[in-house]
Design a protein around this nucleic acid. Sequence first.
DNA 1: GTCTATAGCAGGATAGAC
DNA 2: GTCTATCCTGCTATAGAC
Lengths: 216, 216
Amino acid sequence: MKNHRNEHTRERILDEAEALFALKGYHAVSVREITGAAQCNLAAVNYHFGNKQKLYLEVYRQRWLPRAERVHQSFQDSLKSEQAPSAGTVVQSLARAFLEGPLSDEERNRHLRLVVGELSQPTEAFDQVIERVFRPLLGSLISDLRAAMPADMDQEQAVLNAFSIMAMVLYFNLARPVIKAVLGATDGSDLQTRLIDHLVEFSLNGIAGGKWETGK
Amino acid sequence: MKNHRNEHTRERILDEAEALFALKGYHAVSVREITGAAQCNLAAVNYHFGNKQKLYLEVYRQRWLPRAERVHQSFQDSLKSEQAPSAGTVVQSLARAFLEGPLSDEERNRHLRLVVGELSQPTEAFDQVIERVFRPLLGSLISDLRAAMPADMDQEQAVLNAFSIMAMVLYFNLARPVIKAVLGATDGSDLQTRLIDHLVEFSLNGIAGGKWETGK
DNA sequence: GTCTATAGCAGGATAGAC
DNA sequence: GTCTATCCTGCTATAGAC
């Protein structure tokens, strides 16, 4: 009975499993590695979750989903304070919710890597990700965007705009090392902030097509 | 000696390995699966490539790299025909090189999935991908963009613009199923073309910041 | 709920015949 | 170059003591 650690074994397993799955992907991580990191016994995974696959699904259900909802909430909260948010505000709120919102750097990295994993190699968690998170988030984003520029943006345009923004959010996180490498030693200062600024300006102009002013 | 198939075993293994690695990722594919698909013996992988890891690297060297160079070439060729290409032409050439250029749909899907794999879970192939393909391509793109709008775009801006375009190219391929799901049964017609149009317009506006005209 | 011990198996790799 | 046969490691999963 080595278990005098503050957190319960089950929770520690979820934490370590999430970190490892995000870092290496499902198949590259062994149950031994997870239980080793969680400092518990090999058998604990089967006891608490049944098997490795079910552990993975629980990571999504109990760690990833709530966090995704926090991000969505943060996005909506920062919009609720305004009555008729401009497109600029909408895009900025979204970018901030993802890139500097309620998540720590480490959490955000885990979170986005996991979703990229599901996008590129879908498992049983895929449907959850799409239906319970992606679709609602895109729904919010699209309706907010359309409200901000009611004139001549049809549904498909709005969807594609939303996807383009998500593309940058995901990619700027995933390719951070590459971006750093290419930009060279120029950084040191807050690359993160400059990325957000760029993302907001780029996508705002992308959406607006030069037709609306950013109010910048 | 079952080998009366047109292609040499070594080549068939490379083909099938690439398809499987792209589809499922390195760790999710077994050597048995590869040799099964290539209709050859299990031992053939070790005979021809040494081990699984070296096979994976050969897939990059002998299949992925040349294809990446074809795409880059296609991008540059379509620009060479013009003397002072506008930013719109540059972006459109890039998008077309990737999304409807020299690659078939299947090839393109493989190609982009493999690179996303390396981005999200780097292996020994990562450096090759960055140094021999990514950096040169970004270099071309950046210098073309800066030539097209010499006024006030600094190096970092150009880099971030280039990354934003690449983000959309990669993501629009990866998330194609999601996009289809969200857009619903609206498609049928050529989604591909509409995606390219959107990508070009979005990123052109994103780059130009409303300051340049697209000439559209 | 946590542990030890082990069953049972799949995967990578090799030796050696052809 | 290709095949068969086999080794052996490392994995998931389970049974059962505590």
